[in-house]
């Protein structure tokens, strides 16, 4: 063999051996057992401590209150939403107590008015809604009820109400177009208000021969966009004018 080759072979042989040895001794033992990773890492992550105990954990001690809570509107709002992570409290119930947010600022996190929130979600304007009174003076957070059924639709449909309030339809009551059962205010999902069904409904005010005040814009229902119902082009809560 050429001298050069044999000398270089020694150098490369030593390096290769070092690599093989390093691999043998340094690769973590659990690496590659399941996939191309340390199987022990999964166990380490699985072994992390939980902070939120889960709503089932509360029932074993706070039976009464959980029973009440599970029956009412906030049934899907887990205890730890308001009271914070409870795992430590479950382990040491007397030493570690959980906070109960009673200040006025807390409830608006969910119930403060925000147009980005889905319509139908109960929202109030924290500035004008019984200013300075803590929410819990009127509402029991475990069994929330409005002190009286909301007389205003805006309690839940704030975004629509606010839009309508600055539109040409501001003076029309919601119930003028939506027939609403009393039950809707109690179980809103089960008793839905009605919606107008025909062009003739809008025609009562906007038709050419309607008996409404004359400054209300008129269209000839026979020719005006005859293939469509009115609200396919106009938004009744904020009607567009040409």
């Amino acid at each position: 063999m050429r001298q050069q080759i044999s000398r270089l072979s020694i150098v490369f042989g030593v390096l290769l051996l070092a690599l093989v040895l390093a691999r043998h001794f340094l690769i973590p033992k659990s690496f590659g057992k399941i996939g191309h990773y340390r199987a022990a890492a999964v166990d380490a992550i699985a072994a992390r401590k939980i902070k939120y105990a889960g709503h089932q954990a509360c029932a074993s001690c706070h039976e009464e209150i959980v029973k009440l809570h599970d029956d009412r509107r906030h049934r899907n709002v887990a205890c730890e939403v308001c009271h914070g992570p409870a795992a430590a409290h479950v382990e040491a119930p007397t030493e570690i107590r959980l906070p109960a947010p009673k200040q006025r600022g807390y409830c608006p996190l969910c119930h403060g008015y925000d147009p980005s929130r889905p319509t139908g979600f109960p929202q109030i304007d924290p500035v004008s809604h019984n200013p300075l009174k803590p929410c819990i003076t009127c509402h029991n957070p475990h069994a929330p009820e409005t002190p009286h059924t909301p007389e205003e639709c805006s309690a839940c449909h704030g975004e629509i109400a606010r839009t309508k309030a600055v539109s040409h339809h501001a003076l029309l009551p919601c119930t003028g177009c939506h027939e609403t059962q009393k039950q809707h205010k109690i179980t809103p999902q089960l008793s839905r208000p009605s919606k107008p069904a025909s062009r003739a409904f809008c025609g009562q005010c906007h038709g050419v021969d309607a008996s409404s005040p004359k400054e209300i814009p008129r269209v000839d229902l026979a020719t005006h966009g005859e293939r469509y119902v009115c609200w396919q082009c106009h938004y009744p809560h904020f009607p567009e004018l040409k």
Partner: peptide
């Protein structure tokens, strides 16, 4: 995010799911 893996293996749901008030 680990989907709260340490909760899953204990039969719990991730913390974000646990506290989401509107599901």
């Amino acid at each position: 995010c680990t989907f709260c893996y340490h909760r899953l293996i204990k039969g719990l749901v991730p913390a974000c799911v646990e506290v989401c008030p509107t599901q």
